[in-house]
Computed example of a mutant assay.
Amino acid sequence: MGQLEELENFVRIAEAGGIGRAADQLGLAKSVVSRRLTDLESRLGSRLIARTTRKWHLTEAGQRCYEQALRLLDASAELQATVNQQDQQLRGTLRIAAPLSFGVGHLAPVIEQFTKLHPELAIELDLSDRFVNLIETGVDLALRIGELADSSLRARKLAPISLCLVASPSYLAHAGTPTNPDQLKQHRLLQYAGTSLNSLWLTGPNQTLHQIDSVAKLKANNGDFLNAMAVQGYGIVCSPRFICWQDIKQGKLTVLLPEYTLPERALYAVYPSSRFVAHRVRTFIDFLVAYFSKHSEWENETPSPQQNQSRPGGNR
């Protein structure tokens, strides 16, 4: 086994947080990963990881080895990419993490088209709304929506993500249609878990800001479920257009207060900034940028006047 493989094995242990997780990510037996670490420590003549029954940490020598190993592995990957730059066929495994609702609704055609161009590339896709630590999990890139607080990651914007307030015609017929933000407080609101309607701001036609202070009657950690509840007439939801646009188009949901705007978000591709970006990762990100520049239907769909029209009955 080569020295680069030993170093890659060690880096994966350090980043994954243990031999067991590293073995899972490398697709190797735990005993193999452990033996490779022992061989590396023997060759270098220094202990790299201090282990106890409950926890472990990098030794001082281990931290120095980790930093140098990253540089060597990045240089090796960059050299290979430079030598093979004329070979456009991608190989290996591309590990991607993406939000559940967005992935289910919009990633299948992306993956299908990309793998047609690169049939020798394997894809591992993790669809979940939980936060994924790219370094610890060995994920190559993640798609994320909203503000990016992690400065250790690089990001490329892929598409705008706008929000809108929607409710079903049946709900509005029963509860009335709000004509200004203050009336939302009297309605049944649905909320994505982890966010607060108390911090929801709407900007009016004259650029005045309106804050919604109300307690949600239903919270859930999945946008598709909340959208389905809104379609069933349960209440009003602040939804990303990529979830609700088809129901708006079909008249199942009505956009409320269309003259007011909500803060716009964006879809990003994020990846570690401390690493050489593998050719397959760079190629996929470029493909995402090109794809979503032409396929952001949820943003291009404009509700008809009938869908935005306030129904009689006023506010309840």
Score class of each variant (00 low, 15 high):
101 S>H: 12
255 V>Q: 09
216 A>D: 02
102 F>R: 07
123 I>G: 00
70 L>F: 06
288 L>C: 15
89 Q>T: 09
90 L>H: 09
27 G>N: 06
314 G>H: 03
123 I>Y: 12
195 T>D: 03
12 R>L: 12
305 P>I: 04
211 Q>P: 10
13 I>D: 03
25 Q>A: 11
54 R>I: 10
296 S>P: 04
248 I>P: 04
177 T>N: 08
163 L>D: 13
68 Q>M: 06
137 T>I: 00
178 P>M: 02
132 V>T: 13
85 Q>F: 08
119 P>N: 09
85 Q>P: 02
103 G>A: 04
120 E>P: 03
195 T>S: 15
141 L>H: 11
290 A>M: 11
103 G>H: 05
156 R>M: 06
116 K>G: 00
247 D>A: 15
98 A>V: 00
134 L>F: 12
271 Y>G: 13
75 A>E: 12
33 V>Y: 01
311 R>F: 05
136 E>D: 08
126 D>K: 15
146 G>N: 07
198 N>M: 04
288 L>M: 09
107 L>H: 07
184 L>R: 00
17 G>T: 05
52 T>K: 01
111 I>K: 07
177 T>L: 04
306 Q>S: 14
95 R>S: 07
64 R>W: 15
3 Q>D: 10
178 P>D: 02
133 N>Q: 11
77 A>L: 01
304 S>L: 06
302 T>D: 11
49 I>F: 13
227 N>T: 07
184 L>E: 07
230 A>D: 06
118 H>C: 00
65 C>H: 02
212 I>E: 00
134 L>V: 05
280 R>H: 10
37 L>E: 01
122 A>N: 11
130 R>W: 06
50 A>V: 01
130 R>H: 10
205 P>E: 13
1 M>T: 11
21 R>Q: 14
264 E>Q: 13
46 S>R: 15
223 G>P: 06
105 G>H: 13
286 D>M: 09
109 P>W: 09
240 P>W: 03
305 P>D: 04
121 L>H: 02
297 E>R: 13
139 V>M: 14
156 R>H: 11
164 C>N: 03
190 L>V: 02
67 E>C: 08
270 V>W: 08
127 L>T: 06
277 V>E: 14
32 V>D: 05
66 Y>K: 03
269 A>Y: 06
287 F>R: 02
44 L>T: 02
45 G>N: 07
156 R>T: 14
144 R>T: 15
144 R>I: 15
189 L>D: 02
129 D>Q: 05
29 A>C: 10
223 G>V: 01
93 T>H: 03
98 A>R: 04
25 Q>H: 14
